[in-house]
């Protein structure tokens, strides 16, 4: 596509400042969470949670708080970090797709010799690249904080957990992309992506509180990628592959819709 490089450079420029701010936010989050580790390590929290049903401790991310891997899963990888990165992914997808369309900025852009799908996929790839960059920042933050606070968890599993969380965020960005491609205005697309994120969390974490409903967790992207705790038990490879396939399918469906509909005027 003519101008493909410019699409990438321009999208990169648009996201750069926000990405640096988010990197700072994530580092602050990591250091503040990790600062609590010595307290948990030396406390009797395990005794408290041992009396709770497994489903409840898992639902609220309370499992094995005195264990390094359990601490990381409970305090970072079960909710806070995925939620933040999903917000970033959806906000970026919004700014680069439906948000831009609703603002009328695609009117001139798409009158130039670029294809709709070529423009949008490149933008999405740039956003996904920045999310991977944020994942690297998370890993670097953990690499500094873990030895400093004597938190001895598997580095490989911690990196795998970070990758899984980044992929979960990209998947939700792709949900937004698909909705926007099919013609949803920004608020609707935000609602759809937010709904998928919320439903996914509920399906994985809260519905299993009831034993008969536990099997439904397999339809949740949170379950595909985070399993029973990515640092404690590792990232489910099958789930990660499924998530990657879903990202591809969502992008294709989004592009299919985008090329067959009218671009909304300002």
């Amino acid at each position: 596509m003519i101008g493909g490089k410019e699409v990438v450079v321009h999208a990169h420029r648009r996201l750069r400042r926000g990405a640096l701010i988010w990197a700072g936010v994530l580092l602050a989050l990591i250091f503040s969470v990790m600062a609590a580790w010595p307290g948990f390590r030396d406390s009797e929290t395990g005794v408290l949670t041992d009396d709770l049903p497994t489903a409840v401790t898992r639902a609220f991310g309370l499992s094995d708080l005195g264990d390094p891997a359990g601490f990381l899963d409970s305090n970072l990888f079960s909710l806070v970090l995925p939620l933040l990165l999903i917000c970033v992914a959806v906000a970026w997808a919004n700014g680069l797709t439906a948000g831009d369309e609703d603002a009328g900025r695609l009117e001139v852009e798409l009158s130039l010799p670029v294809t709709r799908a070529g423009l949008m996929v490149r933008r999405f790839i740039v956003a996904a690249g920045w999310l991977v960059g944020l994942g690297v920042v998370v890993v670097l933050g953990l690499l500094v904080a873990m030895p400093a606070l004597d938190l001895d968890a598997s580095l490989a599993r911690t990196m795998g957990a970070t990758a899984a969380v980044v992929l979960l965020a990209i998947l939700h960005g792709a949900v937004y992309y698909c909705a926007a491609g099919l013609g949803a205005p920004r608020n609707q697309a935000l609602g759809i992506a937010g709904g998928v994120a919320g439903a996914g969390y509920v399906l994985r974490s809260l519905l299993p509180l009831s034993e008969p409903l536990e099997p439904v967790e397999v339809v949740s992207p949170w379950y595909w990628l985070l399993g029973d705790g990515p640092v404690q038990h590792g990232v489910p490879i099958g789930g990660a592959v499924l998530a990657l396939v879903m990202v591809g399918v969502l992008l294709m469906v989004g592009n299919w819709g985008l090329t067959r509909r009218d671009i909304r005027p300002a």
């Binding site: 596509m1 003519i2 009117e107 001139v108 130039l112 670029v114 294809t115 070529g118």
Partner: peptide, 17 residues
């Protein structure tokens, strides 16, 4: 898409970055 190389367009509602 390449045909638009031959066209210059000014929309009625122009929104810039």
């Amino acid at each position: 898409a390449d045909v638009r190389m031959r066209v210059g367009y000014l929309p009625g509602e122009l929104r810039l970055d």
